[in-house]
Amino acid sequence: MSENREQLAEMADGLFAGLRGGEFDTFQTQIGEAGFGLLLVPESSEGFGGDWGDLATVMRLAGKHALAWPLGEHILAARLLHDAGRHADALTLLAGESSIPWGREAGDVLVERDGQILLVSGEVSAGESPAGEPRDMVAYDWDRAVPLGIEADLFGLIAFLRVCQTAGALDAALELAIEHTGQREQFGRPLSKFQSVQQSIALLAVEAAAANCAAQGAAAALDRFGHGGDARFEIGAAKLRSNIAIKVGAALAHQVHGAIGFTQDYPLHELTRRMMGWRSEGGNDAYWSARLGAQTLEWGGQGLWDQITRRTDPG
């Protein structure tokens, strides 16, 4: 990790840890003051000038700390507004699908319609995610929509956010599992000394590792191919893999925790409930497997390997 990114990670880690259990408005102030909203805005425009790897780092930590704030949607919106030569006054969010996290709090929303990226607002009907977070449907006022004249793969970018958050949440669940099984005794020895518990935790670590590597791979593709849609192959592969990681990992984390993992007071559910929702956001398994499969069949057998290597080789 570069030194800049390390500093960024340290700052995000501290801030998000401190925000746990806090209020939406406080978050907004503190995150705003820390300048996270401008993560992807170039330094020349007084932003942080970060790249997609930096965003992956920050979103991973948001996932790790179960951050209850639409940070990724906000960072992306700020970047796209900047691409369009604009600046947001109120909280602007990026919308990749019909419902939007904390839509009720947003001033404007960036939405794709008929291939155009529009800045629009609308009437909100409150809803919630499986984790019980606000996730609202918006009836957009298309008549007042402003076309931004930029290109961006909004749906893919939402998928990317979820992959990064999953990477952090699975690592956090792994940490809880290690801590819990090290402390709890059964039949006279710590749970962590039972072979079957060790095997389960190892498997959880494997899934967390897969999600983390997938997130990095997708970030590298965005850094190389930009956010207009050319990184869709890597984003899709990463999202599909991270959906699998959630399926396997969440079950394992709860399994080694036993009943305590389902209580309100224990923090595991803050991670697992969110992850369960993310599996449906930014494309579920069927969505991405169909697209990746079709892309692969178009490339052909040797073509698949050509493409996979060419997309990471220099030049």
Binding site: L292, T296, L304, I308
Partner: peptide
């Protein structure tokens, strides 16, 4: 194929 490619890529 899509699932296998996702796993292989990862």
């Amino acid at each position: 194929i899509g699932r296998l490619v996702s796993e292989m890529w990862t």
